[in-house]
């Protein structure tokens, strides 16, 4: 405000104090307006600070201690917890790296499928044919089920010795001794397959909304210009879906990186702990072993990885030409 006096004020640059009183909306409303956004935001900000920002800061504080919340002593260890995570000689180091690898494998395998297959499904569902609504419901149905339900269901279907899947494979004359839940890579195939079956409906619904937003005139114009189905898909559908696609890619990456229930229930991390994902290991460390310090440190490492990955995806989608999706996981 002090600068107001020293400035050479032209007729249009009057400071608020010097302004002539009120041709209607200018004076007081603009003055009060400075606080209005904050007042309107206050309820959200309050929740944001109390339930997001404060816990994050507290989490960082926790991650700097040997923090067992059931014991009175929580000694300071500085970056010790973080060092342990990357120290192959420590108790948690090798397991943490293995868990991060498991998460990476699952993400790399599942994201492309969960981006592409639902798009195909959405395009089918967008076509006009009798019974369309029924099919839309059928594809979305598995998503309604909780992870515990689909987990137990598939554990019995996939069981290598007494499961339905191997039974039917045997009837078809195919190998019937695949250990879907106790050996890799079969376990990854099973986990990715179950996850695609379970969640593709969600992405498909989002794509469907995006598809319905693309103006039919664009397709008509493309047809008049002589574009075939592929050209229409490349030049009308994909560009029209770009914001939706970006949203789907980022949310799918985050959801896949947070995979927990499927391996917890279906494979129980087997064989050994090869399919134990990062979130599963964090939960075990923090909630079962009460080692909150290390669990918090692991969470922050995972968060940083996800932030970097999300940033990368945003960068890729900012360019004019969307790159093929395998660039995402590289």
């Amino acid at each position: 405000m002090a600068s107001v006096d020293t400035r050479s004020a032209g007729p249009d640059t009057l400071g608020p104090a010097e302004r002539a009183p009120a041709p209607g909306r200018r004076g007081p409303s603009r003055h009060g307006g400075r606080w209005v956004p904050y007042v309107l935001l206050a309820p959200y900000l309050l929740l944001f600070f109390a339930f997001v920002l404060a816990p994050i800061v507290y989490g960082i504080w926790v991650s700097l201690h040997i923090w067992d919340f059931t014991l009175p002593n929580k000694p300071w260890t500085g970056l010790g917890n973080y060092r342990d995570l990357f120290d192959s000689e420590s108790v948690v180091g090798p397991d943490f790296i293995r868990a991060m690898k498991a998460t990476a494998i699952f993400t790399i395998l599942s994201v492309p499928l969960l981006v592409v297959i639902p798009l195909g499904v959405a395009m089918l569902m967008n076509a006009k044919f009798p019974g369309r609504n029924l099919f839309r419901a059928v594809y979305f149905a598995p998503y309604v089920l909780g992870v515990a339900v689909i987990g137990v269901l598939w554990r019995y279907i996939l069981d290598g010795n007494i499961g339905l899947l191997n039974h039917y494979l045997g009837i078809l004359g195919l190998p019937d001794d695949i250990a879907w839940t106790t050996s890799t890579p079969a376990a990854w195939v099973a986990l990715v397959g179950v996850t695609v079956w379970w969640t593709l409906g969600f992405n498909a619904v989002i794509y469907l909304a995006g598809l319905q937003d693309i103006s039919p005139e664009l397709y008509e114009a493309a047809i008049i210009d002589g574009a075939g189905p592929w050209a229409r898909f490349r030049n009308v559908t994909l560009p029209g879906l770009r914001p939706v696609l970006q949203f789907v890619v980022i949310t799918t990456i985050i959801a896949s990186a947070n995979m927990f229930g499927q391996s917890y229930i279906i494979t129980q991390g087997q064989p050994g702990n090869e399919t134990r994902t990062a979130i599963m290991y964090i939960a075990e460390t923090g909630l079962k072993n009460f080692d909150m310090g290390r669990a918090a440190a692991m969470s922050f490492v995972l968060t940083v990885c996800l932030l970097l990955l999300s940033g990368l995806v945003m960068l890729l989608f900012r360019e004019r030409k969307p790159k093929p999706l395998k660039g995402v996981s590289a």
């Binding site: 010795n161 007494i162 001794d177 250990a179 839940t181 106790t182 129980q268």
Partner: peptide, 18 residues
Amino acid sequence: SPKNVAIDTQYNAFKTGR
């Protein structure tokens, strides 16, 4: 025993006479 006996499989198999 067969290979790759998953969680609870041996017990479920016992119950069903497998």
